[in-house]
Structure formats: C-alpha cells, structure tokens
Amino acid sequence: MALAELVAFALFAIVTVASSVGVVLVEDVWHSALFLGVALLSVAVHYVMQQAEFLAAMQILVYVGGVLILITFAVMLMREDDTTEVVEA
C-alpha cells in the first residue's frame, strides 16, 4: 500500500513539475496557460493524497475554474496574430 502511494506521488509529482516547467518554457502564451491548467489540476491530486479533499475541490473550482479562465480570456484578447518572437534582452 505504501509503495502504491509512493508511486502515485512520484507520478503526479512528475506531472506537476513537468507541466510547471512547461509553463515557463513553451513559446506560446496560450500553451503556457494550458500547461498551467495541468499543473494546477495535478496539485489538486496532491491535496487529495494529503487528506485535504475540500482544498482540492476549491483548487479546481477557484484556480482552474476561475483564475485560469480569467487568464485564458486575457490570453485570447491579447494574443498576437502571428507568433512573433519576443525579443530578449
């Protein structure tokens, strides 16, 4: 049982870290927003594994349902038509 939990943790930890790295590394803001969604959902799984079911529900409702939708709207409104490279300093 302990091993199963450990495996589940490792799996979702990989998902969390990988998708949050994705947020900061991908080219397109829209893809970043999608990766952020995955990261936030996988964090909710960690909450469930730590007896914080209510918090997990709130994570999905508030973060994924609210914050992410808001960010998505902003991305859609402000996305440039062609993917121009943002010049780095």
């Binding site: 994705g22 590394l25 991908v26 080219e27 397109d28 990766f35 993917t83």
Partner: peptide
Amino acid sequence: TTRPELRLGGH
C-alpha cells in the same frame, strides 16, 4: 493549432 515549442537559450 500549433505544437508547443520550447524556447531555450539565453536563460
């Protein structure tokens, strides 16, 4: 749709 592209370098 576009495939996600990584932006690396300069970081």
